[in-house]
């Protein structure tokens, strides 16, 4: 088996804040395969964005402690010198943000912003870069790309802006595109178009994608693998079909139950996961999900409250497909063996 494009192991990110140390990411492991799409889901504040910004080294180093490892095609990203990361950003790993209106600079034309990225990494001439920018705008489906390249982001519609953002992210033909909720700020009708565009470009360019979303429906449509995050930890990881069909972690099951299905009666109430996410300043002991978990084993000494569950593969059940969950119910003796995907040490 070839090594994955990106292998994240036991990543931990802590922020020093006035209120104390925030454990925003607390032992997360996952792989991204070349040309495939990893969906990351989880409630607000579960550490999805922090994880991705860490990969690009975009946190303020003065207030952030990062541990663990993230290897991109042989290059260790954690602790890499700023120079290395800078060369990587926009060229090998690029990012599309949630709100294209604020994420694009209001002060430069769309064309100029794409040109800037391209020239930064290729040293191409002005003319060549301009041609490339127009080509990319055309490629992402912006009509009259030559004219649009000379316009400012505020002259674009929301969907067009996000297309331009994608054009900019892909201009250097990166190996990995991180899209952090790329459709959340857009109209519902436009959302599907943007997702289709991403899938289409992925097919053409072979770019691997990390797609952060709140929408399990989107994950089902676009992702190959899925990572479910809870309170800064990976609670479930595996191929999309398996995770969605046979979720192993009670939290994933809760998320799935909260998604309305077409087959459901219209008056069936939505079932969000009861309770609210824990504080990351002082997360619950043991399994961080235990205060909300219906399956939690009770009693003060029960493992759910005292022992951090590992992200383990139930190999017997899945045939080694890589489907893993961090739950004590999974790790019952005889049914599962810890593997190299171990997320955390108790």
């Amino acid at each position: 088996m070839t090594p994955p494009l990106l292998a994240v192991r036991d990543l931990r990110v802590r922020f020093a804040t006035e209120g104390g140390v925030v454990k925003a990411v607390d032992g997360v492991s996952f792989d991204v395969e070349r040309g495939r799409t990893l969906g990351i889901v989880g409630e607000s504040g579960s550490g999805k964005s922090v994880t991705n910004l860490t990969l690009l080294g975009l946190h303020n180093p003065a207030r952030t402690t990062i541990e663990g490892s993230a290897v991109l095609d042989g290059t260790e990203l954690v602790g890499a010198p700023e120079r290395t990361l800078r060369d990587l950003r926009g060229q090998r790993v690029s990012m599309v943000f949630q709100d294209p209106l604020t994420a694009l600079s209001p002060y430069f034309t769309v064309g100029a912003q794409i040109v800037e990225t391209y020239r930064r990494h290729t040293g191409a001439g002005r003319r060549e870069a301009k041609a490339r920018a127009v080509e990319m705008l055309d490629r992402v489906g912006i009509p009259q790309p030559e004219r649009r390249a000379r316009e400012y982001p505020h002259q674009f519609s929301g969907g067009m802006r996000q297309r331009a953002m994608i054009a900019m992210a892909l201009v250097c033909d990166p190996d990995l595109l991180i899209a952090d909720e790329p459709t959340t700020a857009l109209d519902v009708t436009v959302q599907a178009q943007i997702l289709d565009l991403l899938a289409e470009l992925q097919e053409q360019l072979g770019t691997a994608i990390i797609l952060v979303t709140h929408d399990l429906g989107v994950v089902a449509d676009v992702a190959d693998d899925v990572l479910v995050m809870y309170a800064g930890r990976a609670v479930e990881f595996g191929p999309v079909a398996e995770v969605l069909d046979t979720p192993r972690h009670p939290y994933t099951r809760g998320l799935l139950a909260s998604v309305p299905r077409l087959s459901d009666a219209l008056d069936r109430p939505l079932q969000p996961v009861p309770g609210s996410p824990p504080s990351l300043l002082d997360p619950p002991s043991g399994c961080a999900f235990h205060p909300r978990c219906a399956h939690a084993v009770d009693g003060p000494e029960a493992p759910c409250r005292t022992v951090l569950p590992l992200l383990t593969r139930a190999q017997a059940a899945s045939g080694g497909s890589g489907h893993a969950a961090a739950c004590h119910l999974e790790a019952a003796p005889g049914t599962a063996a810890p593997t190299d995907l171990q997320g955390a040490t108790p």
Binding site: L56, L58, L88, M95, T102, S105, E116, T117, R120, M168
Partner: peptide, 14 residues
């Protein structure tokens, strides 16, 4: 702290 400044950092500018 603005979003678009984060974007240019994510583009690899110095």
């Amino acid at each position: 702290g603005e979003d678009h400044v984060r974007t240019v950092r994510a583009k690899g500018l110095t």
